[in-house]
């Protein structure tokens, strides 16, 4: 039961000849939330897409639920892990409900059509991101933040056990930043999901993540518990800018010099 949902062994990833990590060993268990922090361009998204099985690593293995992506196959992988992309382009018009329903794809047989149950799941997912009255809206007419929540709803409809989130709170106002991170934390707490998210806000990582993976660039990474990792010293070194940490009621805020 308690085997890691995500495991990497001696993982080496590089992007355009520059190393992201040399030999990363990582185990993420059900219910755990991991934040990946680092400067722009150090390869956070690249590492995330390797972990999600979208691209190959240089060496080493990625195991989800104990199996490699190649052995598990595309469809079964999609039943275990889901991915929230950073950028999305919609060329053709579609309604919000149709967009959320694509998350049900791995759950359907080849000739099966989305049924009552799938539509109910999709509506519940829309409600969970506060878009329930938007079901018939054209996605092209949605704002950036609404599209972000819609993508999260599609991910919820997919209902994976392992979430890879590339900047999940981009485009969102503060209310929805909190709401969406609460939502994923609830998936972790109540459904034993494991969550990996790329974040740019150390304060949010402090509040919503159990562990931190810092990507320094040139292959240097650091992995540890949130409380140990999110110090002014570590963060200043990570972001190459002097930072101060303010604490209030058990939460932190980061103030640049």
């Amino acid at each position: 039961m308690w085997r890691p949902l995500l495991e990497t062994r001696k993982l080496a990833v590089d992007i355009g000849g520059i190393a992201v990590c040399h030999s990363l060993d990582l185990e993420l268990y059900p219910g755990e939330r991991l934040a990946i922090l680092g400067c722009n361009g150090v390869g956070k998204s690249t590492l995330l897409s390797v972990l999600a099985g979208l691209r190959q690593s240089q060496t080493g293995n990625v195991l989800i639920d104990g199996q490699r992506y190649a052995d598990l196959g595309a469809r079964k992988s999609a039943l275990v892990r889901g991915w929230l992309p950073q950028a999305r382009g919609d060329t053709f018009t579609a309604t919000a409900l149709e967009t959320v329903l694509i998350g049900r794809h791995p759950h359907l047989e080849r000739w099966e059509w989305e049924g009552e149950k799938d539509i109910q799941i999709a509506r519940d997912a829309l409600a969970a991101v506060d878009l329930m009255t938007f079901d018939q809206r054209d996605i092209q007419s949605l704002s950036g933040g609404e599209r972000q929540r819609l993508a999260i709803a599609a991910l919820l409809a997919q209902s994976p056990r392992l979430f890879f989130l590339d900047e999940p709170i981009a485009y969102l106002d503060i209310k929805y930043q909190i709401a969406m991170l609460e939502l994923f934390s609830r998936e972790a707490r109540e459904k034993n999901a494991a969550i990996v998210m790329v974040l740019h806000e150390p304060g949010m990582a402090w509040r919503y993540c159990d562990r931190i993976l810092m990507i320094h660039g040139n292959g240097k990474v650091a992995l540890g518990n949130t409380i140990e990792m999110l110090t002014a010293e570590h963060l200043s070194s990570l972001y190459r800018y002097p930072l101060e940490i303010l604490e209030s009621r058990g939460r932190i805020g980061v103030v640049p010099e």
């Binding site: 099985g53 979208l54 892990r81 889901g82 992309p85 919609d90 053709f92 794809h105 791995p106």
Partner: peptide, 12 residues
């Protein structure tokens, strides 16, 4: 039609 990466992540 939603993108290659999205499709691959959903099992295509």
């Amino acid at each position: 039609s939603r993108g290659d990466a999205v499709a691959q992540m959903l099992g295509v």
